[in-house]
């Protein structure tokens, strides 16, 4: 039986093998495009960080609470210097307040206050920070929690600056 090309091939003369064939030059072009995409991704991360740094250069002071709002051993959540930066205000004693960024310095999970241990605990990877000064006590974080400078104006507590 002669090898006759089917009729439909005249209407759709596509050779799939040729169509799917990728030359090495085309593959190198593909690699270069991926390289560009990776640069774009890294650049976007860099731009985002630059934007965050630029916004946080001179943060304005922010009234975060009144003294009577936070009981001894209590916590208040707020955001400073930008709405993307969650922070914790802790009242350690009647006249002692401290405030830290709530982002763990390992991978930015939110830390929580454990009054029983007097520690700030990151549940993601078991990072622990001293509540007195924010220093790392245990776990994978290597840097202390950024501490906020507080100011008292009458009954009001203000955050004025971020240390570290």
């Amino acid at each position: 039986m002669p090898n006759v090309s089917p009729r439909w091939r005249e209407d759709f003369p596509i050779n799939w093998e040729d169509d799917h064939y990728v030359t090495r030059r085309e593959f190198t072009t593909f690699l270069t495009l991926i390289s560009g995409a990776l640069l774009l991704g890294t650049g976007l991360v860099g731009l985002r960080e630059w934007w965050r740094r630029w916004r946080a250069i001179r943060p304005a002071a922010l009234r975060i609470a009144q003294v009577s709002e936070v009981p001894v051993g209590g916590v208040k959540l707020f955001h400073y210097p930008t709405p993307d930066d969650p922070c914790l205000l802790l009242r350690l004693s009647a006249d002692r307040f401290v405030a830290y960024s709530q982002k763990c310095t390992h991978l930015s999970c939110p830390v929580v206050y454990r009054a029983g241990d007097q520690q700030l605990h990151c549940p993601c990877h078991e990072g622990r920070f001293a509540v007195e000064n924010g220093q790392v006590l245990a776990g994978p974080p290597r840097r202390a929690l950024p501490r906020l400078v507080l100011a008292f104006r009458g009954e009001d507590i203000w955050a004025t600056e971020v240390e570290g």
Binding site: V45, G46, R52, K103, T105, S108, P146
Partner: peptide, 11 residues
């Protein structure tokens, strides 16, 4: 991690 200093050399 908040280690912003590393981001720009990496870029």
């Amino acid at each position: 991690k908040g280690e912003r200093a590393i981001v720009f050399p990496v870029t």
